[in-house]
Design a binder for these strands. Sequence first.
DNA 1: TAGATTGTTAATCGATTAACAATC
DNA 2: TAGATTGTTAATCGATTAACAATC
Lengths: 212, 212
Amino acid sequence: MISEKVIARLSLYRRLLNVLKAEGIRSLYSYELARLAGCSAAQVRRDLMVVGYHGTTRKGYEVEGLLTGLREFLDEPGGEGAALVGVGNLGKAILAYFTGRRPNLAFVAAFDTDPAKTGRLIHGCPCHPMDEMAEVVEREDVRMAVLAVPAGAARDAADRLVRAGIRGILSFAPVRLRVPPGVYVEDLDVTTAMEKVAYFARRGAGKEGATT
Amino acid sequence: MISEKVIARLSLYRRLLNVLKAEGIRSLYSYELARLAGCSAAQVRRDLMVVGYHGTTRKGYEVEGLLTGLREFLDEPGGEGAALVGVGNLGKAILAYFTGRRPNLAFVAAFDTDPAKTGRLIHGCPCHPMDEMAEVVEREDVRMAVLAVPAGAARDAADRLVRAGIRGILSFAPVRLRVPPGVYVEDLDVTTAMEKVAYFARRGAGKEGATT
DNA sequence: TAGATTGTTAATCGATTAACAATC
DNA sequence: TAGATTGTTAATCGATTAACAATC
């Protein structure tokens, strides 16, 4: 089983490689990618082996081929559709950020309790009332969702998502969600992140910032 | 040196304890907190030792005393003031979430390039033009900042923050920031988080979700 | 007391890095 | 070729857990 950390680094490598590609760079060595990603060259080489794209001795890795390998490894072939629950400021920021930017990962449905928001497009994404979740998720074949509702509504919304068949949730809610085994939950906890920054800003950095 | 993971767990324990306190629970055992936090009882006991608040055999930990210990350990005595850079949808969501909720961690200044946003209060927080950053950060004695600007503006904004004397940055920008040693950067990377969820929703959960 | 929990050490586990043969 | 980089194993490192004496 491939660890979460590896997947996170592969995602970072892809983003870095896209920047390099835009700069016209065609190939690079493991230590060059390592320096950009802030990890060791051995780690880059190990990570890239799981992707199945191999470098060549003395020539390193080709940017284009590596990007193809990463796409085949990370992405769903036909593109992945995601749902958003909660179209407040945070939800709108996420919709705005992903709209048009990532053809392989797009929001195909949003849900909100507020009737003023439902029944129309928000950043190009149709917004439905919560009651239609099960139906829309099945029709659009959605497997993952982003949870951006207030803390008090998070558990109920997560339960609805799971009942609707969602298999992965990215949650911004400051509560631990209870989901059945097999459903993946990733917490993006702004409160804890703020408290970590406050602590280390005061006491001196835990890890040092990247100095490259 | 206390690791980032320990600080993150202490922050989580505090949040869980606040919920328990609101429910009228006065004391609890390490394994009870462990179950709520999703870790082992031994880890809870080890983590709480660094706080300096000790439990008693057979009685466990008192919620009130433990919360006091956590506050003394994690928080700046007079309260910590934070700055926000970038008052778009994401920035506004963060301001709205923290306003009034956490007396010990409040936004005292926001910055934006848009003249339509500067010179007024947004969710109770004064918004300044970027040029005034150094002056405001010094006057308000701000040590930490949240970076919620578009990707292209992130590096410049981070450089300005560092020059203004900021010691900790919580960044939502999908780029690796380059900061001098001693400045702490915490990345809350929504793109990578989305790709992790997409991957594990498809392949089956990496870690299983909490089943409690 | 007997039983259960804490504080703390030793053992375990997993992830990372160092090192090096194979290769170009 | 000589030199440098990849793929991969062995060694290292740090974090987590198991275990248990001390304690109430």
